[in-house]
């Protein structure tokens, strides 16, 4: 484990969208952060953030990360995160990424040896889902002696980049883990009614190109099934193969996540259902910022992994809860 230096840290944030802007504000408000440099190709958005924060936040350009950087948070659109993470690791900075793109998640996990050589931690998928889902899966697993299955689902989208990713995910192949091997199935198939925390409640969810299984399977040795689904309307499914018909909203409404763990406790089979509700961009920002501060304050195991692999998950979950993203538990149903 590598601990970062004790003095206030210098952080670079890539992306100033709905999630990135919130991350910048949360980090700049922390006494453990000395300076936040934010980068985004949209100069107008960049100026808005700089003007809304104090002098500890400045604007930067390009991908090159200064060697004085302690941590980098990558909240740029999917497809651009691997290059930014590589640049940050090259500079010896710990990295937190938020991508849910399958190809990019694979690229980031493949940087494991590079991160170990550079003696830094690379947290892959530290958002609402993946991210909080991975943490809740880890937390829920402590209630079971053996975890057989993990099924995660999400409803809602954050900023425009998240909405585009949601649209693409529904028309792309999903990656599920079943009986010890990867299975690819069409996005938009496998309808299942998932019950989310209020006010989202019941939503039909479908398979999609989501990266959760790639992050959960390495963290749970011997697991039999891992699936990920996302909520979609009939219109979403019909228009999924087409280009987006209209520009996405600046930010979606309230969303939610749900994690269902099935396993054994002694000789009995048990089901644990955990979840959370928030605006997805806000939820992702809380998880990413709390993870970055966790890296700065407590260090992280060198190499690339998701939040399900974190050892002291309780501290991080507690910090996330203190920031207003409170996990919930579904209670009252009969365990099978």
């Amino acid at each position: 484990m590598t601990l970062l230096k004790a003095k206030p840290a210098n952080v670079v944030v890539f992306g100033a969208g709905a999630t990135g802007a919130r991350i910048v504000r949360m980090l700049s408000a922390s006494p453990n952060v000395n300076h936040v440099e934010v980068r985004d190709p949209d100069s107008t958005r960049l100026r808005e953030i700089i003007n809304s924060c104090d002098d500890s936040v400045t604007a930067g350009r390009g991908l090159r990360v200064p060697e004085t950087t302690d941590a980098a948070v990558v909240a740029s659109p999917p497809g651009t995160q691997a290059a930014a993470a590589h640049a940050a690791i090259s500079a010896g900075a710990a990295v937190v990424t938020t991508s849910s793109d399958i190809g990019e998640t694979r690229d980031l996990l493949a940087m494991d040896q590079f991160a170990i050589r550079k003696k830094v931690g690379l947290v892959v998928g530290a958002g609402f889902m993946p991210g909080l889902t991975c943490l809740l899966a880890r937390a829920g697993s402590t209630e079971l002696d053996l975890v057989d299955e993990i099924h995660v689902a999400k409803a809602g989208t954050g900023g425009p980049a998240c909405a585009r990713q949601h649209h693409r995910a529904l028309s792309s192949l999903s990656v599920d883990w079943r009986d010890g091997r990867w299975m690819r199935r069409p996005g938009g198939s496998g309808r299942e009614l998932c019950w989310f925390p209020e006010p989202v409640a019941g939503r039909d969810c479908y398979r999609g190109a989501l990266s959760d299984a790639l992050l959960l399977v390495p963290a749970f040795a011997g697991i039999e099934r891992v699936t990920a689904r996302l909520a979609a309307t009939r219109r979403d499914r019909l228009t999924a193969p087409l280009p987006m018909m209209r520009r996405p909203h600046p930010e979606g409404g309230v969303g939610a996540i749900r994690v269902e763990l099935r396993g054994r406790c002694g000789i009995e089979r048990h089901v644990v259902v955990l979840g959370a509700q928030a605006r997805p961009a806000e939820g992702a920002a809380i998880v990413a910022a709390a993870t970055a501060l966790h890296l700065i304050n407590r260090g992280f195991v060198e190499g690339a992994s998701g939040l399900a692999s974190i050892r002291d998950f309780k501290d991080l979950l507690s910090d996330i809860s203190d920031r207003g993203l409170r996990p919930c538990r579904f209670e009252g149903f009969i365990a099978s």
Binding site: W195, P197, E198, L274, G275, S321, R326, P327, C328, R329, F330, E331, G332, F333, I334
Partner: peptide, 9 residues
């Protein structure tokens, strides 16, 4: 679900 509900941890 016919019974049960969500509560904050």
């Amino acid at each position: 679900p016919q019974t049960g509900g969500w509560r904050e941890l």
